[in-house]
C-alpha cells in the first residue's frame, strides 16, 4: 500500500470530509428517517416499518413510480434518437473547425439556468402563447401543450438534448474510420453501416449519453411541474407533496430511497451493457 503523506492528505482530506458530511451522513440519515414516525404533525425517532408498508401499499405510489420510470426511459430513447443524426453530422461530416464551433454552440444553452429556460417555454406553449398564435394564423388549434406529458417531454429535451449531443459526439469521434471503410469495402451500404458498424463501435458513448439523460430526467422536478403541470405527479413532485401533507418527511424519505435505488440499478446495468464485449 502507498504511504499516506500529509502533503497528499491536505489535498484529499477536504473533499473526503465534504463527501462524508454532505453525502454519506445525509444518506445514512435519510435511511434512518424512513423508519421514524409522525405523531401530531411532529417527527419522532423510532424504528418502525410503517412508512415502508404504507407507501408500498398505495397504488398511487406504484402508478407514479411506473409513470416516472416510463417518462424518463421514453425521454432517454427519444433524446438519443433525436440527437443521433445531429451528433453523427458533427462527428463525421464537419471539418475540424466547424466541429469545434458546433461543440461550442452545444455548450451555450448551459449559460442560462434550466429554470429560466423552462419558464420561457411557457410563453411558447401556453394556450394563448406564441405557438398557438402561429397555429391560429393557419386556422388551426388552439392545442393544449402546457400541463401535458408533451410539455414534460419539452422540459426533458431542454434539459438533456445539448448534453446528449455532446456525449454522443465524443463517442462517435473515437470510432475507427477504417472500420467504416472496411464495412463499405465488404459491400455494406452507407445507412446499413451506421447501424451495423458505427453504432456498435460507439456503443459505450451512446449508452452513457442515454444514461445521463435517464438520470437527469428521472429526478427532474422543474420540467414536469412547470411544463407538465404536476398532475399526475412524478416521484420528485410526490416527494414535495408528501412533505407538505402532514409533515410526512419519513414517507418522503421512502420515496427518495426508492429513487436512489432505482438509479443505482439502472446505472449499473447500463454501464454493464455498454462495456459488454459483444453486441
Amino acid at each position: 500500500m502507498k504511504k499516506v503523506t500529509i502533503f497528499g492528505l491536505s489535498f484529499s482530506l477536504p473533499l473526503l470530509l465534504w463527501q462524508l458530511l454532505f453525502f454519506a451522513f445525509p444518506l445514512f440519515f435519510l435511511v434512518a428517517l424512513s423508519f421514524w414516525v409522525v405523531e401530531n404533525y411532529r417527527m419522532v425517532p423510532d424504528f418502525d416499518g410503517v412508512n415502508w408498508t404504507k407507501m408500498f401499499g398505495r397504488d398511487v405510489f406504484w402508478d407514479t413510480y411506473l409513470r416516472t420510470l416510463a417518462l424518463a426511459a421514453g425521454a432517454s430513447v427519444l433524446v438519443s434518437i433525436l440527437a443521433f443524426p445531429c451528433s453523427y453530422g458533427i462527428a463525421f461530416k464537419l471539418s475540424a473547425n466547424l466541429r469545434r464551433l458546433a461543440i461550442f454552440l452545444m455548450i451555450i444553452p448551459f449559460f442560462t439556468s434550466y429554470l429560466v429556460r423552462v419558464y420561457s417555454w411557457q410563453i411558447f406553449l401556453s394556450d394563448n402563447g406564441i405557438f398557438n398564435a402561429a397555429f391560429g394564423l393557419l386556422g388551426m388549434g388552439p392545442y393544449t401543450m402546457l400541463n401535458t406529458d408533451f410539455g414534460t417531454m419539452v422540459g426533458y429535451l431542454t434539459l438533456c438534448l445539448p448534453l446528449v449531443v455532446l456525449l454522443q459526439v465524443f463517442g462517435l469521434m473515437f470510432v475507427d474510420r477504417t472500420l467504416i471503410e472496411a464495412a463499405h469495402n465488404l459491400r455494406c451500404g452507407r445507412l446499413r453501416t451506421v447501424f451495423l458498424v458505427v453504432i456498435p463501435s460507439a456503443r459505450v458513448g451512446l449508452v452513457i449519453a442515454a444514461l445521463f439523460c435517464f438520470i437527469l430526467t428521472f429526478g427532474d422536478f422543474v420540467g414536469p411541474l412547470y411544463l407538465g403541470g404536476g398532475k399526475p405527479p412524478t416521484l420528485s413532485i410526490m416527494i414535495t407533496d408528501t412533505t407538505k401533507a402532514g409533515q410526512q418527511w419519513p414517507r418522503a424519505a421512502v420515496i427518495a430511497i426508492v429513487m436512489i435505488a432505482t438509479l443505482l440499478v439502472v446505472a449499473f446495468s447500463a454501464i454493464g451493457y455498454a462495456y459488454r464485449k459483444r453486441a
Partner: peptide, 16 residues
C-alpha cells in the same frame, strides 16, 4: 468486389 486487407486489419471488435 475489391476486398481489401488493411494494415490495421480493421476487424470488427464488436463481432466474434
Amino acid at each position: 468486389d475489391t476486398p481489401m486487407v488493411w494494415q490495421s486489419l480493421a476487424l470488427f471488435p464488436f463481432l466474434d
